[in-house]
Amino acid sequence: MGKVIDVKDVWLRYKDLTVLEGVNLSIEEGDFLGIIGPNGGGKSTLLKVILGLIKPQRGTVEVLGTTPEKARHLIGYVPQYNPSNLDFPINVREVVLMGRMGKKGLFRKYTEEDHAATEKALETVEMLEYSDRQIGELSGGQRQRVFIARALVSEPKVLILDEPVTGIDTMMQMEFYELLKKLRSRVTIVMVSHDISAVSVLVDKIACLNGKLHYHGSKELVPEDVEQVYGCPVELIAHGVPHRVLHKH
């Protein structure tokens, strides 16, 4: 199993604020990693560094053995929920087709192959029947499925999700997590979330980020880490789920 993502000693400062402090993270092929942490802890920033959207001041990032920029066509990205462009004149099919652009190069029109891949991706997320809907006419959960399809349509090796369940009601969240379970055999998944209990049930490795990253390559969280990250003790047991996140104590 090869390394998919390798982050080494990454430091990032915005003006006076240190957002990432010497972050080290290595993600293996087939991993399903959840990154949790408080708001402003640098979760989205770390994802953007991995995607090559932000350059760190210090440290190196390797994705699939090369730079993030060169590996981009192998990454499927689901950005954070952005309510500002809900009324954009674009339908579900056009949104998913966007995911094929990297394969096309400029000036090229979409081909039959692109349309076929789009249909397949929409089928995977069970949204094919909504192909002609304007994106804003969907519910939050449906829209998120479409964005997953857009990320999958380029047949990526890694799927990167930034707070994918923000603004989605609980029922739809459960369905969404079912979809991720289905996908985990196909791709390596990195998901940022502040929903600790959901993440802990779903993923097989957890990292805690608050400037510094706490990660032991496993799912069990060390209570001291979590306390340090959140600045207070956190209830980590998900209700009704027979699963233990913390060490026995």
Partner: peptide, 23 residues
């Protein structure tokens, strides 16, 4: 005409478009 899909993507979602590999 030649850059229709790129302009649409750029206007809709800059971050995704960057990751998808368009300038």
């Amino acid at each position: 005409y030649v850059l229709y899909k790129e302009f649409m993507a750029l206007c809709y979602d800059e971050d995704f478009s960057t990751v998808a590999g368009i300038p």
